[in-house]
Amino acid sequence: MSDHYYNADDLAKFGNIAEYQKEMSDKFFSYYGEVFKDGHLTAKEKSLIALAVAHAVQCPYCIDAYSSDAYEKGYSEQQMMEAVHVAAAIKGGAVLVHGVQMMNKVKEIGM
């Protein structure tokens, strides 16, 4: 094992997960392929969603893959950054909306 957790070359080895569990891996990749095809949303729209989600889950492999994919599919730098802001707003909002829970609790126990 290398002395750091993430290695850019590992992205290309994603398919190797089949070595330890082929059946599940095959099912996952076939599902994955299906998800990203043109459907009621275009493959291009899905790519931008994936870019935002990649940032929200903070996966460096996904950020690498979908930064390229979304740019290749024609999104501009500004559009891609706005997608990242959407992810940030949702994540920030998700933290802040829990503030209501905190307030509820404080109101419950406070005098």
């Binding site: 043109d38 275009t42 493959a43 291009k44 390229s68 740019y71 290749e72 599919k73 024609g74």
Partner: peptide, 9 residues
Amino acid sequence: FLPPSQQAL
């Protein structure tokens, strides 16, 4: 990078 799908483009 490589071109995306010709049809979609």
